[in-house]
């Protein structure tokens, strides 16, 4: 974290009617890091993700990415700036093939327009081939290239999660934001996913992930932020967070509520 941070979110606040989903949450992360965002159910993790990726506009606070403010309320502009995400309840283009899903991810970094499509110009055909090649490469990288021609909805749960990662990587992100990527995976699959994420980090893409399995996160992440009731209650290395009293309280309850 010595380098200047890639992402700086400052004092983010978001409420829905009377419900304060986020209050003064700050988070910063550097390049080549894996950062974990943990917290009990309803802590505001996904809301924070949605603010970060432009799906929600924050009521307070600012987000800077790579040194410039991030547009809010415009998911496609956020993706263009280099943040790609996956979703807690997998959102694939379920009736398209596995390969096509990843090809959609290349849309952002390619140009072919209407006339190119209608008249099948040489440039368009070349670009289309490049899109296909890159998409296939990414499927190989996440290990599901064998299923390239299948309809996405027919993949197993774990493979769907990996397809979402491949699709996100296709946008050439500088930050990959994963909302519970390991949900529903067994220990073996988790281990493989952890390896994949470390590989992604080492290739130069920062990773931010929401997770419930605290032990898995502790082993994987460089730094961890803990949310509870829409507020940040701890931030630090896995070791620091693990021994933080407020974190223990949030996860296990206070001594009073335990006895009650």
């Amino acid at each position: 974290m010595d380098e200047y941070p890639l992402l700086v979110a400052e004092r983010i606040g978001k409420h829905f009617g009377g419900l304060r989903a986020l209050q003064g949450v700050s988070l910063s992360l550097g390049e080549k890091t894996i950062t974990g965002l943990i917290g009990p159910n309803g802590a505001g993790k996904t809301t924070f993700f949605n603010v970060l990726t432009g799906i929600y506009k924050p009521d307070e606070g600012t987000v800077h990415f790579a040194g410039a403010p991030l547009p809010s309320g415009k998911p496609h502009r956020v993706a263009e700036r280099g943040i790609a995400r996956t979703f807690q309840n997998i959102r694939l283009f379920s009736q398209m093939t596995v390969l096509e899903n990843v090809m959609v991810g290349r849309h952002l970094r390619t140009r072919a327009g209407l006339l190119g499509a209608l008249f099948k110009t040489a440039g368009t055909l070349r670009e289309e081939q490049a899109i296909r090649d890159r998409a296939f490469q990414l499927l190989e990288f996440v290990g599901i290239a064998a299923h390239a021609t299948r309809v996405a909805a027919t993949l197993s749960y774990g493979d769907q999660r990996r397809l979402e990662i491949a699709r996100a990587l296709a946008t050439d992100p500088r930050l990959l934001a994963l909302d519970e990527p390991a949900a529903g995976m067994n220990a073996m699959e988790r281990k493989r996913l952890g390896g994949l994420l470390e590989q992604i980090r080492n290739m130069g893409t920062a990773v931010l992930l929401i997770e419930h399995d605290v032990r898995w996160v502790m082993g994987l992440c460089d730094r961890i932020t803990v949310l509870d009731h829409g507020e940040r209650i701890a931030e630090g290395t896995p070791r620091e967070v693990q021994t933080d009293l407020r974190v223990i309280e949030a996860y296990l309850g206070t001594s009073r509520s335990v006895t009650a």
């Binding site: 496609h76 993706a79 379920s94 090809m103 959609v104 289309e128 946008t171």
Partner: peptide, 28 residues
Amino acid sequence: RLERSRIGRAWAAIREDEVAAASMGLNT
């Protein structure tokens, strides 16, 4: 040709899931 193009693929993505499409950088 439209259906099989980059544009057609983007339309299909919007049809399937608009939020996901926007998050992949599609200007819906």
